[in-house]
């Protein structure tokens, strides 16, 4: 099975992401709570949008943000 973002080999126990993108997804999900606490009110889509706009955000994390945004929109 290939990664849904980069076409690398997906890791077995995951729902279709490679090791690196899987790590990003885990981090994005884990840090959502920190962002919510920081800004008070923040929905998932705004979080992804803001995260993908930050220059500090890693490239793979940004790819995951775009993927997650599109999945939600679809």
């Amino acid at each position: 099975m290939k990664c849904r973002i980069c076409k690398r080999e997906a890791i077995e126990h995951n729902s279709g992401f490679c090791l690196y993108h899987n790590e990003c997804i885990t981090k994005i999900e884990a840090d959502f709570e920190k962002w919510q606490q920081a800004y008070g009110e923040l929905n998932w889509q705004t979080y992804l949008q803001r995260l993908s706009e930050r220059p500090e955000t890693g490239n793979w994390t940004k790819e995951c943000c775009y993927f997650l945004k599109k999945r939600k929109e679809a």
């Binding site: 690196y20 962002w35 920081a38 995260l51 890693g58």
Partner: peptide, 12 residues
């Protein structure tokens, strides 16, 4: 490189 590419910043 992996640390940088998978980095998720948090605000403060």
């Amino acid at each position: 490189e992996v640390e940088i590419r998978t980095f998720v910043p948090t605000p403060f």
